[in-house]
Computed example of a mutant assay.
Amino acid sequence: MKYLARTATGDPLLGGDEGYVPLGAVEPGIERVCDALPLAAAGDLGDVADATADPVPAADLSFGPPLGSFGKLWGIGLNYAEHAGDLDERRPEEPASFMKPSSVLTGPGGPIRLPPASQSERVTAEAELAVVMGRACRNVDESDVDDVVAGFLPVIDMTAEDVLQRNPRFLTRAKSYDTFLVPGAALAVPEGPLDLDALSVRTEVNGEVAAENEVRNMLFPPAEIVSFHSDVMTLKPGDLFSTGTPGAARIEPGDEVRAVVESIGTVTAPVTR
């Protein structure tokens, strides 16, 4: 696996087992991670071993978000049958998608800031596998999705559950408070075919597992999600799909939330108000 990332000051990085190097030391002329996304989708991203700089261990670096700005932020609700059952919802026959504004994003490590209690008294956190697009595309067949995806991220998504339960039409508001999406620090770029079905997604709060499931149990797998939405609109590099959670956990100030996506990465954030 290769990793595209940025330092806390915005310098682009390429990582591997050896550590991280400046992206320009492998791909001269590329000054931003977003410009490397098409290379990642095409399988043409260079290797850390070929860099003109020595790799630095991840533990010695301070990371910011992997992209300076993402594109469209899509979420998929009720994408695991068990989670739909937990919420007493019927299994959707098509992807139950929604969009979030860019203002929901916060850096790796958060914090997650809960809205005032006067607006919501019950917020839940959800671990999810996110897909990041690498190429502009339209009407993509499921079999060709690997050619347009740059890589994958762990993300923590939040919901003001009491707002949503008052009326399902309040979904956008319930999902759109500031800091209600925490992306992982490093975009995982597979170096070959990746069996997503075998990977697990886990929501943890204060070190305890709140929910866990495997991607194989999604109602709509990532390739279908991308293909389906490419028939609706043009997808562009940096667009992100949060593909749904195995389960949500209520969070309070002082909690620590972690999303763990097997083989992809982990992201952790404290909760404040």
Rank of each mutant, 00 (worst) to 15 (best):
F63W: 07
L78I: 01
S118T: 14
E161P: 00
E27G: 09
D197H: 14
D144A: 15
A125P: 02
L67E: 06
V21W: 09
A84P: 06
P115S: 06
S103C: 06
D88E: 14
A117K: 15
D88L: 12
V48C: 07
P237H: 10
F98G: 03
L45P: 07
T272C: 10
A58N: 06
T203V: 06
F63D: 01
D47Q: 13
P253Q: 10
T179K: 00
Q165V: 10
A42E: 15
G244C: 07
E126H: 11
A186I: 03
S143I: 12
G77P: 02
T234N: 08
D11C: 07
V205G: 01
A185W: 02
A160E: 04
A185Y: 01
V226D: 04
A185F: 01
N206I: 02
I156S: 02
S62I: 11
F70K: 04
V131R: 01
L187V: 07
N167E: 13
G107N: 03
D146T: 12
P57A: 10
E161N: 11
G16M: 09
F63Q: 08
F63Y: 15
P183I: 05
Y80D: 05
S176L: 08
I30Q: 04
D147G: 11
G71W: 11
L73R: 00
L164K: 12
V33Y: 05
V182L: 02
A41G: 08
G85T: 11
P12A: 06
A51H: 05
Y3W: 14
L61V: 12
W74N: 02
L240A: 03
I225K: 04
D146G: 04
E252A: 14
A81C: 00
A211E: 01
G46W: 03
G16W: 08
A25M: 03
G238C: 11
A81I: 04
K100H: 04
L187N: 04
L164I: 09
E93W: 08
T124M: 05
R169L: 15
D147R: 15
D86V: 14
V257T: 08
R91I: 15
D86T: 14
K100S: 05
T159Y: 00
G151P: 07
R91Q: 11
L129I: 08
L129W: 06
F180I: 07
L105F: 00
V56T: 15
A49E: 11
N139I: 06
T266R: 12
A198P: 03
A81M: 02
A42W: 03
M218D: 02
E82P: 01
L114T: 03
V261I: 14
E214A: 13
D239L: 09
V132T: 05
E128Y: 03
S230P: 06
R122W: 02
Q165P: 03
T52D: 13
